[in-house]
């Protein structure tokens, strides 16, 4: 398995709004092993709620960047990405993680080996890190690492 990363800087407009959607396939399952949520906005007292969920449709994100390989020797990623504000939200399945993060804080979650979040082995199935609510809109820096 090879490690891939993705990051996005965006401000959620209409919540819930996606941040990073890792889209697998019937033959390539994404195994999310870590994610990071922080903000580069001017520090004030505000907070947001964020979730990780399985998805069964791709939705439409603001951009579709190419996943970044952690090693030059890794093959190109099979999973694809959709990041930023989603005009069409993906269809949500199992809710895998839920947390609130203060804007001044930095939140990082890491899975121990073998305990990652796996996407379903189906076309267009994936894993979504998204913002459920914010006390006031503020920009987010979200990054994710996954194995495939």
């Amino acid at each position: 398995m090879s490690l891939y990363t993705a990051r996005v800087n965006f401000t959620p407009t209409t919540v819930p709004d996606g941040a990073i959607h890792i889209i697998g396939s019937a033959t390539a399952r994404a195994a999310l092993c870590g994610f990071n949520i922080s903000s580069d906005a001017t520090p004030v007292e505000q907070t947001g709620e964020y979730q990780v969920a399985r998805t069964s449709t791709t939705g439409t994100g603001a951009a579709t960047p190419t996943p970044v390989k952690a090693s030059n020797f890794s093959p190109a990623a099979v999973c694809t990405l959709a990041v930023g504000t989603f005009s069409v939200d993906p269809t949500l399945g199992d809710l895998l993680f839920d947390t609130s993060v203060h804007q001044k804080n930095t939140f990082r979650w890491v899975a121990y080996p073998g305990r990652e979040y796996h996407s379903a082995p189906a076309a267009n199935a994936g894993l979504l890190i998204h913002c459920i609510s914010q006390s006031a809109p503020h920009s987010l820096n979200v990054s994710a690492e996954w194995l495939e």
């Binding site: 930095t106 979650w109 890491v110 305990r115 979040y117």
Partner: peptide, 30 residues
Amino acid sequence: AAGVVITCDFDGKTVTQDTQQCVHCGAHWV
């Protein structure tokens, strides 16, 4: 533990919290 959350408290001190994983849906909780 199946994972770890790394964040900080109101004094800026690093705080780590274990997470466990559900054997049925795969979700993690602190």
